[in-house]
Simulated scan of single mutants.
Amino acid sequence: MAHPAELPTVRLTSNRFWGGDFHFSIFTVRHTPESHPFQYCRNFWKIIYVLSGCGAEVIDGVGYALRPDTLFVIHPDDVTRFELAGDSEIEICNILFLPELIAFGAPFLADYPDFMRIFDPARKPEVGREQRERLYIQKADQSIAALVRAMLREFNQAQANYRSVIRLQLLELLCRIARQSDRKIRRSRGRAVAEQAADFLREHHSEPFEPAALAARFGVSRQYLHRVFSRTYGMSLGDALRDCRLTAAYRQLLEHPERTVSEVCYGCGFNDLSYFYRLFRARYGCAPGRLRG
């Protein structure tokens, strides 16, 4: 296979996939390492949903893992290609459409403006890393998986009024993608806040601790900070701070024999010597003074 930089870029046009005024198509395709010696861009939107197999979708030079139930919304100007290892195969359901197909539903999508504004062609230069993450769902939930399969059946059977049904299904699909994407972004932001809080505790463990001030430092509420920290680390902020202080005390007792136990205790942020003794013994199985032999 040619080096990615040497692959020709082919621009796919919508008239290859549909004719007339119904700007939509859905079909399954199986890819192998030799299937496509090109990279592609297009003049329509594309949603890929992985039915089976594993690989990667490379979008504008950045690779994203693909596995069953992975879903990706691809911008028309994105330059894409598949990467598959060895003799592996991957089966994809492709959903192709133009935004005009769902223009009637714009008022119903107001709850997710950050997601839906990507369908404005003038905003392509603004599709950054976070926006790209909104378009990538590593494992779609069951409601999305069921809806994709229902759309495939509806399109293939082409019963009366199937176009109207497809338009409604596509609108629902985008709503469900936006909903799951929004949950993912919130979790990602929460994890980032929790990690910053953990770094702060490690660096400032010896200082007085005020949860409200720490929350204000990151621009979130105290309740939100407690919730995301507990979800990320499985412990409270207070427990994490005690761990940081105990770890620092253990290290100082070994590295600074000239310091008394009291100096280490108060220097690491504890304000009660007997409390420090109890915590230290529970954590390390001996009194602080015994650590030095």
Rank of each mutant, 00 (worst) to 15 (best):
R16L: 07
W18C: 10
G19Q: 13
F22R: 05
S25L: 03
S25Q: 05
S25N: 12
I26V: 14
I26Q: 05
T28Q: 14
P33G: 11
P37H: 11
P37D: 08
P37S: 11
F38M: 06
I48V: 15
V50D: 08
S52P: 03
S52F: 12
A56S: 15
A56W: 03
E57R: 12
E57T: 10
V58I: 10
Y64N: 06
F72E: 08
H75C: 07
P76T: 03
D77L: 15
D77H: 15
V79Q: 04
L84W: 02
A85S: 15
I95C: 11
P99T: 01
E100Y: 00
G105T: 00
P107M: 08
A110Q: 05
Y112D: 07
P113G: 08
R117W: 14
D120E: 14
A122H: 15
K124P: 00
R134D: 02
K139S: 11
Q142T: 13
I144H: 08
A146K: 15
M151P: 03
R153H: 05
R153V: 11
F155D: 01
Q157L: 13
A158C: 06
A160N: 02
A160Y: 04
Y162D: 00
V165S: 04
L168S: 10
L171V: 03
L174K: 02
S181N: 05
D182F: 06
R183Q: 09
R183P: 01
K184C: 07
I185S: 06
R186H: 13
R187L: 10
A194S: 09
F209I: 12
P211C: 11
A212V: 13
A213F: 10
A216Q: 14
F218T: 09
G219R: 13
G219K: 11
H226T: 05
V228P: 02
Y233D: 08
G234E: 09
D243K: 07
C244T: 09
R245Y: 01
L246D: 02
L246W: 01
A248W: 01
L254T: 01
P257Y: 09
E258W: 02
V264Q: 02
Y266G: 09
G267I: 06
G267L: 08
G267K: 04
C268W: 00
G269I: 06
L273P: 00
Y275A: 07
Y275D: 05
R281A: 14
R281F: 13
R283I: 01
R283N: 07
C286E: 10
A287Y: 12
P288L: 09
G289E: 12
R290M: 05
G293E: 10
